[in-house]
Design a protein around this nucleic acid. Sequence first.
RNA 1: GCGGAUAUGGUGAAGUGGUAUCAUAGGAGGUUUCCAACCUUUUGUCGUGGGUUCAACUCCCGCUAUCCGCACCA
Length: 558
Amino acid sequence: MTEEGDGRLERLNEMLKRRGFLLPAFGIYGGAKGLYDFGPVGGRLRSRVNQAWLDHWLQLGNIVELSCPTVTPYEVLEASGHVGEFSDFMTTCKACEEASRADTLLEPHHPNPDALKRDELQELLHSINPECPSCKASDWSDVVAQNLMFNTTIGSGSSGRAGFIRPETAQGMFTSFPSIYRHFRERLPFGAVQVGKGYRNEIAPRQGMIRLREFNMAELEYFIDPEAPVDVDLSAWENQIITFIAQDSPEFTSTLAKAHEDGLIHHPTVAQFLGMTHDFLVNMGIIPSKIRFRQHEKDEMAHYAKDCWDIEILGSYGWIECVGVAHRGCYDLESHHKATGKSLHARREYAEPKTTIIDAWTINGATVGPTFKALAGAVKVAVEELPKSTQFPAQVTLSTGDTVTLEEQHVKPNQLTIKETGEWYIPHVIEPAFGIDRIIWHMIDHAYHESDKDGEVYTIMKLKDTIVPVDYAVFPLFEKDGMDQMAMELHRTFCASTGIVSMYDGSGSIGRRYARADEIGVPQCITVDHQSLEDRTVTVRNRDNGEQTRVSIESLTQ
RNA sequence: GCGGAUAUGGUGAAGUGGUAUCAUAGGAGGUUUCCAACCUUUUGUCGUGGGUUCAACUCCCGCUAUCCGCACCA
């Protein structure tokens, strides 16, 4: 196998374009930065990965799939913190009209300009007046926020409402919490999954598929009761040695259970999801030794996170974050609750109802009201705090600072039994978020094998059978004598079966066709030859070892 | 966003102030009893907009995109 670094990445990218895996979008218009097409081969690959991802999480048994709009009202993303967090503060040089980031300009003059608010940046910028990096002038416009989300208007004209194209799928799932809660009969834990597009108007999209302006994401929002005992079994991964990079520590290996026992992974469900993520990636063909889990530093953690892990994959661009598993606490539901006033709580029933017996004093409203007038409310609070043993008349100091004298006629005994069967709380959320494009890139990167064949590079895509874009390639040995009709018939039979993709190829020599099929990773090539015409058997060639077996057509199509 | 480089058939490349070359690929036909073979034939191109010029793929300028650093982002 040819190793990387000798032009492998260039050959891979060239092949992906030529064979229709991945192509720059809108190519006939010169392309558009940060936008890619999944082509005739890649489109199928993507949909299979999406489906495999959904199936993987639906296994848990308490997961539903949602599909929420990409167009999202301004208020939703303001409440979630994205309007505030997803912006850069820009200023323009009045001499040359070059736009620069205000915090970058101020870096030599302030320890951490990134943390400044807009007004503070503006003040500092105008007092220091740094040189323009391109024209050396020192005359800056006002600082404006440039948001990394795509702006849009929902509706037109004066009735239009400000909105964004979503930067992640998560918010739609949070705002759907009440209906998911009802669906699951108000019993946590449960989760919602969604695969879909997300959009970020990146300043500098780079590195092919790694940083896109429109990207495929897959997210699970898993809602838990922070106080409920957690029933998580990590034994499935007890023999799985995983590479970790944690806060304040160098790279080391351990198991998920050990990492949790050591207090590194705070929540067992986070550990479970890290394990399930590992399983998914390996099922997709990611090489296990090229996976590592990296814990976010405290200052790097996003605005919502309590504990956050990146799953990084090693590929041609180095270690790239492809999945994030974040314990978001109650941040999201609480934010939307505060913004809307709508209940996003769950109910926790006590094992035993809590009974509170109150045996003390309360006010006699008929006398306290007329006597104390505006102070009556404060009197009530003070009276209810008095011990049962209080003798009246009594001097009482109110929260207002006033001191009043309470007569026996102002009070009456207060005997109550309050029974509480449970309480309301805001569920916590654990969120695995997958960058599907990045994962597909690494699947391709890891599956791409080159070998030397008579001085030429021979390419095989060793993709997993479960997600290959094409399941079968059907060839007539020669396109004559009825072999072509028989092959076409078999091809059509395959295509008529749900979930199977077949490709007919009768062009060029048989060896050339095998090579073409290997290049896009077709696991099995089926060839119709002269013998097939007589006994309805065909040869099946294995992609990875080239071995052929002869089987009957019926055994393939049943 | 900054600095540097680049942009020629589907893919990879050469080249020139007078409308372009090679390899490979794709289609059709032939040949061929299974791993990129061969023969015939055919398809298709100078990223984009402007300028200079009798004439621009070539020179100049803008734009767009790509690659490499830096920065940014996750």
